[in-house]
Amino acid sequence: MLPHVYDELRRLAAGFLKGCRYDQTLRATALVHEAYLRLAGPSGAGWNDRAHFFRAAAKAMRHILIDYFRRRAAEKRGGGEPAVRLSETAILVDDTEVEILEIDEALQRLSALSSEKARVVELRVFGGCTIEETAEALGISTASVERHWRFARAWLKSQLDADE
């Protein structure tokens, strides 16, 4: 299943990133939700449950975006091969992208300390999931998600600050 999610997300991400260039009225629907609707269809076919999907999709999304930005960053530094992954119109590397990369690195460190907290962040940041959806995806209570999220958020931000 994962290849299909990956596939769909990549297409969505490519379109989305391209769309970012233009001042248009594309509504800000989270990509992952969009992908879920497309992949699962009205009956939700093919997935054990939404939770399963969101876990997979958030991971895939993180992978896609990080990979993409890493290439972009590398190109900006003057190295790297042409990006074929997201092959449409190029976008500029901006601070947001740099920040995303930093978060990803910090997230890897967090993951070594607490994989559950890291998964909460992944779902929230890369999966665009709400607290409730995150709880559903991980099979834990919303209170736990809230607690994990608050801690992880502060921890990650303090890590970024410390890096500076």
Partner: peptide, 15 residues
């Protein structure tokens, strides 16, 4: 502020 304070940074970025 920052990327992390958004449910979906993509959405924010677009906004």
């Amino acid at each position: 502020g920052g990327v992390i304070d958004n449910d979906s940074w993509c959405a924010r970025r677009l906004a």
